[in-house]
Design a protein around this nucleic acid. Structure first.
Lengths: 357, 357
DNA sequence: CAGTTTTAGGAAAACGTTTTCCTAAAATAC
DNA sequence: GTATTTTAGGAAAACGTTTTCCTAAAACTG
């Protein structure tokens, strides 16, 4: 072994070339399996590459090619189940298409989101997938992305006014179905705990609620509709307040499972039975909804599927439609959510499904 | 606007140079804030850079520098709370140190893990952080990493025989403390649901259990110790079986919260009160442990902290100790876990903390 | 004011690929 | 057996930085 210690340089294409006795350019072609190199030579080159422990240098290749086979994703928080699942889906799609993935978090901060965009542009990603932070109200930074000839796909938390591919939940329909489900169980005084009203996503969910109420011919007092209740604690407070009214709700639709959990605790504390006295359904189908007692009904957003689909908007667009302005000028896809009926909202126990599995 | 459509090229350092009237090399120096460029010129350059909407090209820079200010992390699954939190911690550390992060999943497959290693080497990451897949039994691929002058830090699921920096939980101590806690609550017939025994991590947890039992002078029948029970369903089956014995356990320590959940359900089904008749404590402090009833005691691994610390092994090692073989030849750090006492294991309700918050 | 040092910046090579354009040799055509 | 085409590979430029070594001019020194 010649010189154990001295920083052994990585083998390059040139080393292979020298060892095999051909030109570097031919090695490159061989490794890229171009038809202009003979099969014999290719196997020779591949063997030598393995022998020298050669690793392709993406930085050099990307620089020369101008593309990176890398996509970047920006999400508010990576360790929130919904986004973690989405990322898992994206990762899968990337793997299936031999792309790398760089992940950034905005931490719900607009500034961090801009920094992430900056980073991804610098990294020469081919495409950015983004779910906007709660603070984000302008789209100049998105413009930056497209200005640099980088593809852009927005998902879940999107700005509809900005022209890009978009993938969202059927928030309105999902909420509609959720409330319809409550109604079908005989609940009539259904309260709503929403999110910040300036986010389209939450607007849509509220609209779905209102539509369902309307189309069922129900009337709901104003104070049954409360915005900006996403966490457990505020939900518990707000629900307790409502439950103590003379005219109290007999069901709650919350746009967050955490809020649903808060409502459940409030009901317990007020001595109300769930689902007997009070029905509850949340949104997101968080893992914990399966382990509360009673288990919590919720709306499943199929987050993993959503991640895959988001990435595939890019892969299909860039792979198939290399012809630009075809159909796909600004795709809008909608992922259908599913109402998961669990104990907290199902009154008529058909076959005494109390204990569950 | 000159030519709206034609692929506008990204501005380069050379464009700035031409615009300002200096050499490209000087622009580079100015942007990197080297002292050999005057302040006036620097501000001039920066202004022009902004004006031309210049973005630094990392690929080019990395190629030339040989470093990438990027670290790669390989975990079994990104959408498991523990790893998602770890990654969140790593991401934070990366942000604080102005590094990029590339995330790969092994999906518990050895082959995927090797692929991930390959990818990260190709991407010229400066450092790889890895938690091994369950299938991983050899370390040639880790050797590959260090062969390419890439720093390596193993965390949580590590191979102690491979010489690298390592960060782990105090699995044995944590388990010891967990069992001690059960004992302190008056439980004496404590069963153990472990993981696959060939993984060091699970071996250690079992050892902690055995040590605690031993040092308390208790004796446990063989059938109270069951390996490879990590999920809810098998735990429920196994626990039910044990609870039906004449000599049945009065407490369970499980190395997974999912298993703990299974035990809880089994206890309910067998009509046993938790924590009155049966004590339960799990491991990992999954989010759902707070929402079951009774809430589940567990061992918190401080995953987020763990992620940060893992990354900081690299940052501190490479930043401070640029002198090689100092103290840090093969660091072994241990993160102290904490026993989180919730309802499922606390018998003597000191102040009637039944309903909880 | 001649000699020395410092300052501010420039020229050019280098990083490791890919790609375009060439060209010998081999194969085919007639 | 010459003319043409095909095949297999080579030479060199290019991608956009960083870095090393240089050098005029400016600033000191005495």
């Amino acid at each position: 072994m010649p010189g154990e210690k001295e920083k052994k340089k990585r083998a390059t294409i040139r080393d292979i070339a020298d060892a095999v006795g051909i030109a570097p350019s031919s090695v490159s072609k061989a490794l890229n399996d171009l038809p202009t190199i003979s099969e014999n030579m290719k196997t020779l080159v591949r063997a030598k590459a393995r022998e020298l422990n050669y690793k392709h240098n993406s930085n050099a290749a990307n620089l020369r090619r101008g593309r990176s086979r890398t996509i970047g994703v920006i999400v508010p928080k990576i360790n929130v189940a919904f986004f973690a699942d989405i990322i898992a889906g994206i990762e899968q799609a990337c793997f299936e298409n031999d792309h790398r993935l760089i992940i950034c978090q905005s931490h719900e901060s607009f500034e961090r989101e801009m920094q992430a965009v900056e980073t991804l542009i610098q990294q020469n990603v081919d495409c950015v997938l983004i779910s906007l932070s709660q603070e984000t109200k302008t789209t100049d930074h998105l413009k930056e992305i497209t200005n640099h000839n980088i593809q852009l796909v927005q998902f879940d938390r999107v700005d509809h006014t900005f022209g890009s591919h978009i993938l969202v939940n059927d928030n309105r329909e999902a909420s509609f179905k959720a409330v319809q489900h409550l109604i079908s169980q005989g609940y009539k005084k259904i309260a709503f705990f929403g999110g910040p009203d300036y986010l389209p996503l939450y607007k849509e969910r509220k609209q779905g609620y209102l539509d369902a109420i309307g189309s069922a011919g129900l009337t709901i007092p104003y104070n049954f509709i409360v915005d900006n209740i996403l966490k457990r604690a505020p939900a518990e407070v707000a629900a307790t307040e409502l439950l103590r009214l003379k005219f109290a709700p007999d069901a709650f639709f919350t746009v967050s499972d955490y809020a649903a959990l808060g409502v459940l605790k409030a009901a317990e504390r007020c001595g109300k039975k769930v689902p007997g006295d009070i029905g509850i359904i949340g949104f997101s189908n968080e893992a914990f909804t399966e382990v509360t007692s009673p288990t919590l009904s919720s709306v499943s957003q199929q987050s993993r599927e959503m991640g895959r689909e988001t990435a595939y908007i890019y892969f299909n667009y860039v792979l198939n439609h290399h012809d630009d302005d075809k159909a796909a000028h600004s795709l809008k896809l909608v992922i259908e959510s599913a109402v998961i009926e669990r104990e907290s909202s199902v009154r008529k126990n058909k076959k005494g499904n109390k204990a569950g599995l």
